[in-house]
């Protein structure tokens, strides 16, 4: 079960990670971040995450702190 860890305190709600995820596992969250917009959360009920790390690669704010493949 691969997964990513998001540091919401660093998220500035640009949603580039959500756009790029091939499995659409990153979604807007209820919490608002420093910009006043919804931050993102990782939701992978069916273990679809490929650990491709594309989300981490496009994130301009180091908010995706790790991508783990298991």
């Amino acid at each position: 079960m691969s997964y990513i860890t998001i540091d919401k305190t660093k998220c500035k709600s640009c949603y580039l990670c959500a756009d790029v995820c091939p499995k659409a596992l990153i979604k807007k969250d209820g919490d608002t971040g420093k910009t006043g917009q919804a931050t993102v959360r990782f939701e992978d009920k069916n273990n679809e995450c490929l650990a491709c790390a594309q989300c981490a690669m496009v994130c301009p704010d180091l908010a995706i702190v790790s991508v783990i493949k298991e």
């Binding site: 500035k12 640009c14 910009t35 650990a51 981490a56 301009p60 790790s66 991508v67 493949k69 298991e70």
Partner: peptide, 29 residues
């Protein structure tokens, strides 16, 4: 299970760095 780190924040970035760029700015990348 074995786990493999596919990505982590690079060591050459200072610890606890929060970029001060605007949202979505490519400077961070």
């Amino acid at each position: 299970q074995t786990s493999e780190i596919k990505y982590t924040v690079p060591k050459s970035i200072k610890k606890d760095t929060v970029f001060t760029f605007c949202p979505g700015c490519d400077h961070g990348v």
